[in-house]
């Protein structure tokens, strides 16, 4: 038998930090979502390679949308990081303030994204390129909407006093989800906004 001390140690109970099943769950969620976005990007690149030089649109997606959107999501990752730090110190005013800022950034991103859609010179029906552009950004946008709902719920839980330094898993989970969603955006930004403008 393994040594008796380890078997008789005092153990934490319930939902705590990176040992909690909530954390393991979001790691698994990110794994499967990362696979999903890999397949989306694969599909985009596969079609691009098959089509060759004619891939894309005469007027490429505008960086004057893409850059502010990217800034907003990078800022969102920063505020989510602050929120997580605040939660582990039980500094709940900072926690709520940073989560609220995050929410504002995300809503800003969503507004920019939708207006970008309407400003494009092509539609999902124009060509395979248009279809791929809108489905890739659309999948990401859906993740942003779900993530915004997640932030709202965590703010409510923080205001209800459910979160402190020993019980901060919801903040950790939301932060991890958002770091992932923001990282995906960086890839999409390069692929869909930067590359078409520089080639």
């Amino acid at each position: 038998m393994a040594d008796a001390n380890a078997m008789n140690a005092e153990l934490p109970i319930g939902s705590i930090g990176r040992r909690s099943l909530g954390w393991w769950g979001v790691v698994a969620l990110i794994a499967t979502e990362a696979a999903l976005f890999s397949y989306l990007i694969f599909s985009y690149l596969y079609l691009a390679v098959q089509v060759g030089p004619n891939w894309g649109s005469n007027i490429p997606p505008s960086l004057s949308y893409g850059i502010p959107m990217t800034v907003l999501l990078v800022a969102n990752s920063l505020t989510m990081w602050l929120a997580e730090k605040a939660a582990t110190r039980a500094a709940w005013p900072t926690l709520v303030a940073s989560m609220t800022l995050s929410l504002i950034f995300v809503i800003g991103f969503i507004v920019f994204e939708v207006s970008d859609w309407f400003s494009e010179s092509f539609t999902p029906q124009t060509s395979a390129y248009g279809s791929a552009f809108f489905v890739l950004t659309g999948f990401h946008l859906a993740h942003c909407v779900a993530g915004a709902a997640m932030i709202v719920e965590v703010i409510i839980w923080a205001l209800l006093g459910y979160i402190d330094e020993s019980r901060s898993v919801p903040v950790m989970v939301a932060a991890a989800y958002w770091h992932f969603t923001d990282a995906v955006w960086i890839l999409l930004f390069v692929l869909l906004f930067v590359v078409p403008n520089v080639r």
Binding site: L36, Y39, L40, S43, Y46, L47, Q50, V51, N54, W55, P124, Q125, T126, S127, A128, Y129, G130, S131, A132, F134, V135
Partner: peptide, 25 residues
């Protein structure tokens, strides 16, 4: 899931993921 989603989009919303005439494959 993505493959079936793209197929459904092609069928219902006239996207062109699998439509050779419009650059699909």
């Amino acid at each position: 899931s993505l493959a079936f989603f793209l197929l459904w989009m092609d069928r219902q919303f006239n996207t062109h993921f699998f439509d050779v005439g419009q650059g699909g494959q």
